[in-house]
């Protein structure tokens, strides 16, 4: 077998968990909540009743509980809608070396991100909304790389949208909180819409049954 064919098979297994759009919709829903939470922080910042500590705890609880619930819901939805149409695969667990590489890459990435944000703040103290711009560029990059590797065209469109949204929210000079709120909210909506369209076309596939293999 030619190597390109093998690559195509590997690509299809990589695409399995993304082609139905369910994970995208759930992640989009989480981002909408994060956006609303950022908006609440920006609006209620001066309210004496709500302290910043309670907001931070609430935000952390939202992210952690939301991720946990989304994972469970995602599994249920996949079992209900995806498995009868596309079957089931269990992806291979990463080796210890791969986990270590991931950890090193993650730490390095966070270091670079922190450095970029610090330099940006230092050189342009008056400009606000840097965080949102950097996050939008990062998300666009990830989406673009993923989209090219797995050949998912809608990821390319989402990458362009993310970048445009990041630039727009930075240009409007809304401040860090409001620009973050706007970015996460609208990008979350875009993910829900993209995932919804993908799910709609996925559900057109016929349901397969396994009589007796």
């Amino acid at each position: 077998m030619d190597l390109p064919e093998m690559n195509e098979i590997a690509r299809r297994t990589g695409r399995y968990s993304l082609e139905d759009g369910i994970n995208e919709m759930l992640f989009g829903f989480m981002l909408v909540l994060v956006g609303l939470s950022c908006f609440a922080e920006a609006v209620l910042k001066h309210a004496p009743v709500i302290g910043m500590d309670s907001w931070k705890v609430g935000f952390l609880a939202l992210v952690l509980c939301g991720s946990f619930l989304c994972r469970r819901l995602g599994r249920k939805l996949k079992s209900r809608f995806v498995e009868p149409r596309a079957g089931l695969i269990v992806l291979r667990k990463p080796t210890r070396g791969a986990k270590l590489m991931g950890l090193v890459f993650g730490v390095f990435f966070l270091f670079v991100l922190g450095f970029v944000l610090t330099v940006a703040r230092h050189h342009y103290p008056a400009a606000s909304g840097w965080y949102t711009l950097v996050i939008s560029v990062m998300i666009s990059g990830f989406l673009l790389i993923g989209g090219i590797q797995l050949r998912l065209r809608r990821f390319g469109a989402l990458a362009v949208f993310s970048l445009a949204l990041g630039i727009a929210s930075f240009s409007l000079r809304l401040g860090d909180n409001l620009s973050g709120a706007a970015y996460f909210f609208f990008f979350g909506l875009a993910l829900i819409a993209g995932g919804g369209l993908a799910l709609r076309s996925f559900l057109r596939r016929p349901i397969l049954t396994e009589n007796e293999p």
Binding site: G87, L88, R92, L208, T209, E210, P213
Partner: peptide
């Protein structure tokens, strides 16, 4: 993959 079902 680690495993795949018949339908996949």
């Amino acid at each position: 993959v680690e495993a795949a079902d018949f339908l996949y």
